[in-house]
Design a protein around this nucleic acid. Sequence first.
RNA 1: GCUGGAGUGGCGGAAUUGGUAUACGCGCUAGUCUUAGGAACUAGUACCGCAAGGUUUAAGGGUUCAAGUCCCUUCUCCAGCACCA
Length: 916
Amino acid sequence: MAKKPAKFKEYNHLVIEKKQQSLWDKNKTYKTLPVNAAKGKKPFYILDMFPYPSGAGLHVGHPRGYIGTDVLAHQKRMQGYNVLHPMGYDAFGLPAEQYAITHKVHPKRAVEINVKTFEKQLSAIGLSYDWAHRINTTDPEYYKWTQWIFLQLYNSYYDVKKNKAQSIDQLVKIFETKGNKDYTKNGNAHTTYRFAFSAVQWKGFTELKKQEILMHYRLAYEADSEVNWCQELGTVLANDEIVDKDGKQVSERGEYPVEKMTIRQWSMRITAYAERLISGLETIDFPEHIKTIQNNWIGKSEGAEIDFTVAGSSEKITAFTTRADTLFGVSAVVLAPEHDFIEKNKTQIQNYSVVETYIRQVKNKTNEERTENNEKSGVELKGIKAINPANGQAVSVWVADYVLAGYGTGAVMSVPAHDERDFEFANKYKLDIKKVIQSVDSENTSLPFIEKGMLVSSEKFTGMGSDVAKNEIVKSVGGRTITNYKMRDAIFARQRYWGEPIPLYRDKNGIIHEVKKLPLKLPNVKSYEPTGKAEGPLAGVKAWTDKGYETNTMPGWAGSSWYFLRYMDPKNTKSLVGDKEIAYWKNVDVYVGGAEHVTGHLLYSRFWHKFLKDIGVVNTEEPFKKMYNQGLILAADGRKMSKRWGNVVNPDDIIKTFGADTLRVYEMFMGPFTASQPWNTESIIGSRRFIERVWRLGQKIATSESNSSGLVTKADGKFERSGRTIFAEGEKGREEIRGPENLLSAAVTTEITLHKTIKKVSEDIENFAFNTAISSLMICLNELENVANSEQGIAKEDFKTFLQLLAPFAPHVTEELWEMFESISQKAKSKKQKPSQIHLSIWPKYNPKKITSSTVTIGVQVNGKVRAEITIPTDAIQADVESIAMKNEKVLQWLEGKEIKKIIYVPGRLINIAAV
RNA sequence: GCUGGAGUGGCGGAAUUGGUAUACGCGCUAGUCUUAGGAACUAGUACCGCAAGGUUUAAGGGUUCAAGUCCCUUCUCCAGCACCA
């Protein structure tokens, strides 16, 4: 520890931080006002992605985002907003369960332990959460509403005409009165149940049959689907829970192998919202790359379905294409190995045994083998010909592994001249390559794959541009324009114990019923380890299965898809969020979290929010107005911090040696908030020094004799000192009184610095540019120190303004110093008044007039190179600047023997003289 | 392969969007104070050069009075997608 003059109090972060934290707690400094008590205060909702409370606790990288939001929360609070800045725990799901299994404790107990560790660590950082809004997804009072939302989804279908979710009862009514003749209008294109029946037929169906039909419309539905099964984890995983490692599909958690399997599963019809999920992106302020990824993930493509009749048969094959304009160039129709046409028409296929062998081979290939090399293979279906509806030509039909079963119709029309993949396939199997499109500029006519151009090979459509030709051709062959999405429906079941039970049960006849009384609580089980089968540990609970309850539980993302709403009104027992609260807070203003949730949580919560809007629970289309991704903090070795590498830095240790304020300042200062940075414990000392210097300067100013040394700026723009006006701006040039021997000069400089800093810090916090905000605070401190060391000294009020700007970053030390200044002024006034708190003080405003000084130093360039510097009045006109520049010795030297061609003056920046 | 983003001192990084490149901090060098310092403070620190001056924003070219910033070519790194017809 440094030696200090005896009269200064030592900066002891341990004492100060502990003291201030307990005072904030006691005074409820960070309390969010209830809606009733908000009294016209504007709401501001700042949210962190809530953590999985894993057993490992926090490392130094975790709080980066929390500190960022906390800085903003402080500023907004000081700017007079009613700030909702909560924290909670996403405690269902694999992390908690795995901890429980390895530590042989009940998951519930594991969560309790981990939450405790978490909260202790978070509190030490001095984050300004209102803990009264704390939530935990595993709390039955919370998951009651997760289950409630599930039931609403189960009881809804997507009305394509109204473009919103509707009650399933309405669909039943339609079936009862009109049947399902108009089925394309009763569901979104992707999921329409293509089965027509009359109202009379509907009434004749059994309950079970009706249930089966309705299941094709419900937004939460049960269906056979191909899933990613992970044997080691004993569960199904979502696509975003799987990563690619050395070409193999493995689980993100634990990196265990994952294979494809078809089982009966609960799913969410997120595809019904595909269009709204895309269009909504334009209305929200998310990082561009997040939007791009979501857009690609949803993968919208507009095209057409075209029917190819099969020669000598009533069968037809429907192909999806985005290039209907190339229909005249079709050389073959190619089916995915899974396409049901093959099985159905096996008697017509002359070489069926060959085809069958091929299909078996393809299916036995693992995913990585199929993608390993892109070489295409296939087998022709001998004896089958498809008729091209455009020209009546009979083309061969193939089965090939490059056609995907899950996309479009599982059948494509092969146009080798205009599609790279078809080209490759055609080359291998010697199919025709017919060019039917010519590029408009007719330069690259020898090349295939022309993106757009003129149709050349058909009399009827010759010369039409691509887009026109597409529509005309689709119309002429009776095709249907259609929109396809890459995105699949989301599996909504995990074969695990530690999740929300699905609140449905099946009676003896197989009919599904809702659980009326929520929450349906998770029962205790002897073993919560995975069974390794496609059923959860709940299958072992007789009392559970006897009632016909589902043995799968909800996936981890269920509870996290709506938690931000619960924070608004966490104790509500009547609804998931109160009407008043939702009307006031609406949605999240600023959301901060890692980028790894782009195609998971960030998509699912948008989907649920839109659904909740449809059923009238919320009043906004999007849950998050604005979002930032904090960058990762890497270990000093450049790798991710992980136990595995033994490079974890624990924030507790940093706080102990350097203090929470130092940690906060350092993490905000180390680089741009959104960029990843390596941690460097060596560099942290800079932030510590900064805070110590603030502390020492504070001590110095507080103990200085008088408070009259500074200038006070009056509203009329006049400067005042000890009540006497000294000069007014503009009456005299300030230049005159800025000479080094003039006492006023330092005060004016201080004022300019301070107002500049207010502007910079205010704007930077708003834009999450924390590193430059701190940089400007450091510059400001340097300036203040210089002035304080001069005869002039610093006014207490000026220093307090500086403290306010620093307060969001270093809340403890600034509060301590503020308290000190307050107690000094309290002595002067009455002792009765309660001293104010810096975090409840009013954020300083800057005066634009105070930012510019009367003179400015600019560079003089000769032919683009800086040759001299001149000081000019800020408002000087070009002619004056020119004449000043021309008098400069250096400039003259460089201009010698040259003729001036052009002079450019950029006000306040530089003057450039072009000369030859 | 495709899509998106990025390359600036020994290191983390600034640069008002075309206007004095290298702010701020770390580290380093010298000094002050100290019994000592791996504390603090003061000064210096992009590179070459004794200096005058010259050269620098991954590499090369271009537009401009003026380019880290705009355009073209090439290289490297990171992230996402991966036969989506």
